[in-house]
């Protein structure tokens, strides 16, 4: 298959329309000097990948992605950014000075995995493009064959919930609280 054949398929145009912004947004996530911009780029990248999911017929998963990530997780991130008072404006120091070792490691992963997958799958065609998987199949799978992992994941979420509360809770020990307030006051005075 030549590049000409490939590019003449309309679905591949759709692919490019989503993949190129996806990569650009992902690039912004890891390079942006502004934390909020990085988080919003992640929103964009995830939205684009949801588009790819729809292209591949995984409509339910795409909407789950939109709802769970763009709806909830990103909000969580923005809260995290605000609460930890991460530098919201431009920040030169957001990344290390030494980038080359990291870039090298990332590049080696990219070459290894992409070479391996191209080697293994080559030009295997995706036949029924855009034929959606019915949500019923997913529902039956989740509550049938995969019910045990499903329950386990549910339990994990519960544990994460309780863990999150425990971690983020401030102990209301009055003595400690007073000490903290006193410390803040002395800090504020000069």
């Amino acid at each position: 298959m030549t590049f000409g054949d490939w590019i003449s398929e309309p679905t591949n145009w759709a692919f490019l329309v989503m993949a190129i912004p996806l990569v650009l947004a992902a690039w912004r996530v890891v390079t942006s000097r502004n934390v909020v911009h990085a988080a919003l780029s992640l929103v964009f990248a995830l939205a684009a990948s949801a588009g790819l999911f729809i292209l591949l017929g995984a409509e339910f998963v795409a909407w789950v992605l939109v709802l769970v990530y763009i709806g909830a997780v990103i909000v969580l991130f923005l809260f995290g950014i605000m609460i930890t008072r991460a530098p919201i404006g431009m920040e030169a120091e957001l990344s290390h000075a030494k980038r080359w070792p990291a870039a090298l490691a990332a590049l080696s992963i990219f070459t290894t995995t992409s070479w391996l997958s191209v080697d293994a799958f080559g030009t295997t065609e995706i036949v029924d493009v855009g034929v959606p998987t019915s949500t019923e199949v997913l529902g039956r799978g989740l509550l049938g064959q995969f019910v045990l992992p499903f329950e386990a994941v549910g339990f994990l979420l519960l544990a994460a919930l309780i863990g999150g509360v425990t971690l983020a809770r401030r102990d209301d020990n009055p003595a400690e609280e007073e000490a903290r307030l006193a410390a803040e006051e002395t800090e504020a005075k000069p």
Partner: peptide, 23 residues
């Protein structure tokens, strides 16, 4: 569409993530 194009895209995303994780 061929499956490799998605796999390459996925590994590109993954390695960008690794880069960000390290840097």
């Amino acid at each position: 569409m061929i499956v490799s194009q998605f796999l390459v895209l996925a590994s590109l995303l993954f390695s960008l993530g690794v880069y960000g994780l390290l840097v």
